[in-house]
């Protein structure tokens, strides 16, 4: 298992919160944030994970980087098992997965210079020090389109887009196999989004890194990803290659997401069929029986509230979890 094709292999991962007794012995409801998912990310690929807030996207990303222990299942990074690994091993594996966060204002320590922030992974892992460290930081800054002399500045002296570049430089410092991008452009001005996305694409071409791109912006997803996974209440409801996904969405939830994307052309926008979901996202502490989506689904019939549909392959390669689509 030394040189695997997939940088990430997730098998049947579930993450639960709460349920343990509190200080006074009361026991809260178990929140099933992630409820048995499988996912592979090939080397050099970009996979998008989409879904509305509270569907478990962030919990899943935290589990992948090892900040959140799963209740069950297996997470392999470049073939190495994360779940149940001891501290030293975990630390070694973590080196291969890094993360880019949504809000660049919060993802940099305001009291550290940008240079110190980028250098931190190299220092704590004893990879470089002194002159060599300075040179590596300068190279990283240049790679993300900043100047080496920016290293002495503090985060507040940069714009949002520049800060996100710093965050990217830090994520790349350890030359990871996989970078999880958690809504990396949604906090940025529209004018700089394209710059950051293009930077991510260019860096992928140069380094061969894989991305797990967590987002709810299908426009961005279409621009950058090879494969799309849709998540609803802790489970995947549809997985497909990008072109299949956008030309022929199958799951009613995916269709609803698609119909919510505004079109640039007003004529197209007006003629677009809007599929509006009723109701709210049910609480992950109380997931509906059967298909979790049946409470809001326009196609729902009796079977949907009784039997949970599995992800099944379709002729065009997509995998969909729905009785009717």
């Amino acid at each position: 298992m030394s040189e695997t094709k997939n940088v990430l292999e997730i098998r049947d991962v579930a993450v639960h919160f709460g349920g343990r007794g509190g200080l006074l012995g009361q026991s809260g409801p178990v929140v099933k944030a992630v409820n048995g998912v499988d996912l592979d990310i090939p080397r050099g690929a970009t996979v998008a994970l989409v879904g509305e807030s509270g569907c478990g996207k962030s919990t899943l990303s935290n589990t992948i980087v090892g900040l959140q222990a799963p209740a069950s299942g297996s997470v392999r990074i470049s073939g190495e098992e994360v779940v149940g690994a001891d501290k030293r091993k975990l630390n070694d594996i973590r080196r291969k997965v890094q993360m880019i966060f949504q809000d660049p204002a919060l993802s940099l320590d305001p009291r550290s210079t940008v240079g110190a922030t980028i250098a931190e992974p190299l220092i704590v892992r004893g990879i470089a020090k002194g002159k060599e460290l300075k040179a590596r930081v300068a190279t990283l800054l240049q790679q993300v389109g900043l100047r080496p002399e920016h290293a002495d500045r503090y985060p507040h002296q940069f714009s949002g887009g520049q800060r996100q570049r710093v965050v990217i430089a830090r994520a790349l410092a350890l030359e990871p196999d996989l970078v999880i991008c958690d809504e990396p452009v949604s906090a940025l001005d529209v004018s700089v989004r394209a710059q950051i996305l293009n930077l991510l694409v260019a860096l992928q071409k140069r380094t061969g890194v894989s991305y797990l791109f967590v987002s709810h912006d299908l426009g961005v997803v279409r621009h950058i990803c090879d494969r799309v996974v849709v998540m609803y209440l802790g489970r995947f409801v549809e997985m497909a290659d990008r072109d299949t996904f956008f030309s022929n969405p199958k799951h009613p939830y995916t269709k609803a997401l698609m119909s919510a994307v505004p079109e640039a052309d007003p004529v197209v926008q007006r003629s677009k069929e809007r599929l509006i979901l009723g109701g709210e996202l049910p609480s992950p502490a109380n997931i509906p029986a059967g298909c979790a989506f049946h409470t809001r689904c326009p196609l729902a019939t009796e079977i949907c509230s009784k039997e949970r549909p599995e992800l099944t392959p379709r002729p065009d390669g997509a995998r969909v979890a729905c009785h009717h689509a």
Binding site: L67, F101, L106, D109, T117, E120, P121, V124, R125, A173
Partner: peptide, 17 residues
């Protein structure tokens, strides 16, 4: 709970650091 602390953890920094 801020992301920059999470980033430090991912960088491999220990509790003391």
């Amino acid at each position: 709970n801020l992301p920059f602390i999470k980033a430090s953890e991912l960088a491999g920094a220990g509790a003391a650091r």
